[in-house]
Design a protein around this nucleic acid. Structure first.
Length: 480
RNA sequence: GCCAAGGUGGCGGAGCGGCUACGCAAAUGCCUGCAGAGCAUUACCACUCCGGUUCGAAUCCGGACCUUGGCUCCA
């Protein structure tokens, strides 16, 4: 398995530190507002990484932080007249709900910054003792000039980092020094006691305190979006490698590309900001996941409802095959008998794995799925596929769907083709009546019933013999 | 200014030295009572521009141009 590393810029062969165990850390949200679909892109990408690593047989500990101590939280709380703590809890809860709705279900533990203050303080104390940090009247800072590797992840030299857009705090030794501990300012409510008086942690230190607590000084994979490379991840490297003296902090740095809208980064000031909740009002989670996974995780993607619609249509095509297979399996004698494992199945699984092994190339993995769908459809038409193979294909699609976190089988998701309730019974009744009309060759009325049902989102699919199938229209979709 | 990611067919989006990516949309045919779904075929066969290397370049090298992002708030 190969993973592209931001550090080296190359695809590296993957080797876990502890045999079968993988420690994966991904930067979580600052919970001061609802998460947007850009966050969703990143978390879906790493959800699939975790799913695939598990599929490969690794034991994955996927850790994510929740930043619940932060300037923005304090500011927003003041604006909305709530306490920073209750604001943070509220948006943390909404974040977790959003992730659930998106099928992002593989994080093992969410670690709150506020619950790791002793570990944070401990790390800062060690940094001061080792001479990598110093105290001023405003706080404690990391001395960037003492850490010679500073800039190695973002490929910037010390001179490059001299430039700055925001005026640095004058008490700092170097403009690039970053805050480890912020001393309490007037009226601040959220503070903790520390050797430097009351205050709160800086932005970067929580992550290394958390990862050190659960993983130790070194771990396998650290993920996040591109914008975190500098300064955040650079700071993490500096803090932890300086503290422990062990290098590297992380073996594989993985960074996701942005989700853009009309070619621009999503931001509130541009008015192109869509929250996950708003998006899920308009389209289903599977279509969005499918859209995200259609591109490689590192590529920038451009969000539009049209693009989601295209993904939805593609997803429908795969689901259609599952329906066709179910219908085939219900009609005995329509396919060959064989005990052999079908070559198509073997090949598709091998290719899927090969592509996922290549830096989680979901684009190509999906191509493999589509190729399988095409081949199987053709062989069903030609009647050259065995029942065993049909069963195996169905199982394989379920397996692929599980890795990608997308359901390829709509039968798992509710009423499609089976009468489950009174509505289903009524639909069945219409279909039976219509079938009688068809037998009498009353095509006009039969077609009218089909059209009217279609308007009610019930799609009839006639077959040569029998009453045919029906399904609820479009298991995925977009409303504008 | 520095660093990074990009510019590919009607659209989305891979590939990164030679073989149709794939998907969506479209056209035609097969199938069907018709439709849908499916299959097959097609689309004067696309790669920002200019040089170069090569038997051969979207893919490598050089040089332009353009877009987006990061440079201490950012997924």
């Amino acid at each position: 398995m190969k993973i592209q590393s931001t550090m080296t810029g190359n695809k590296e062969n993957f080797l876990a530190i502890h045999n079968n165990r993988i420690n994966l850390f991904v930067c979580g949200p600052t919970v001061y507002d609802d998460s947007h679909i850009g966050h969703a892109r990143t978390y879906i990408a790493f959800d699939v990484v975790a799913r695939y690593l598990k599929y490969k047989g690794f034991s994955v500990f996927y850790l994510q932080n929740i930043t619940d101590v932060d300037d923005k939280i304090i500011q927003r709380a003041a604006e909305t007249n709530t306490s920073p703590r209750s604001l943070a809890r509220k948006f943390e809860q909404r974040y977790l709900e959003d992730m659930q709705a998106l099928g992002v279900t593989n994080v093992n533990y969410y670690a709150r910054a506020s619950e790791h203050i002793p570990e944070i303080i401990d790390q800062i104390v060690r940094l001061i003792e080792l001479g990598f940090a110093y105290e001023t009247e405003t706080g404690v800072y990391f001395d960037e000039s003492r850490f010679e590797d500073f800039g190695k992840l973002s490929h910037q030299s010390a001179e490059d980092l001299e430039k700055h857009r925001i005026e640095p705090d004058p008490s700092k030794r170097n403009p690039g020094d970053f805050s480890l501990w912020k001393k309490r300012q007037d009226g601040e409510q959220v503070t903790w006691d520390s050797p430097w008086g009351k205050g709160r942690p800086g932005w970067h230190i929580e992550d290394t305190a958390i990862t050190e607590t659960y993983f130790g000084a070194q771990y396998d994979i650290h993920g996040g979006a591109m914008d975190l490379i500098f300064p955040h991840h650079e700071a993490e490297i500096a803090q932890m490698e300086a503290t422990s003296g062990k290098k590297p902090l992380v073996r594989y740095w993985m960074h996701t590309g942005f989700l853009n809208v009309m070619g621009e980064k999503m931001s509130k000031s541009l008015g192109n900001f869509t929250t996950i909740r708003d998006m899920l009002q308009r389209c289903d989670a599977d279509s969005f996941r499918f859209f995200v996974l259609s591109s490689h995780y590192r590529s920038p993607i451009d969000f539009s409802l049209e693009a989601i619609e295209q993904s939805c249509s593609g997803l429908e095509r795969i689901r259609q095959l599952v329906k066709i297979i179910d219908a085939q399996l219900e009609t005995p004698g329509d396919s060959l008998e064989s005990d052999e494992i079908d070559a198509n199945v073997i090949e598709a699984r091998a290719k899927f794995i090969e592509h996922m092994d290549n830096d989680f190339n979901t684009t190509y993995a999906l191509r493999t799925v589509f190729e399988l769908v095409r081949d199987v459809n053709r062989r069903i038409n030609e009647k050259t596929i065995s029942r065993r193979a049909l069963n195996d294909v169905k199982e394989l699609l379920r397996e692929f769907g599980e890795i990608l976190g997308v359901s390829f089988s709509v039968t798992e998701k509710g009423p499609t083709g089976t009468a489950e309730d009174q509505t289903g019974n009524l639909i069945e009744l219409f279909i039976e009546i219509r079938q009688k009309l068809r037998e009498k060759k009353d095509w006009q009325l039969a077609d009218e019933i089909r059209n009217r049902l279609n308007e009610l989102n019930v799609v009839l699919e006639d077959e040569k013999a029998g009453k045919g199938k029906y399904s609820i229209k479009k298991s995925c979709g977009v409303s504008k």
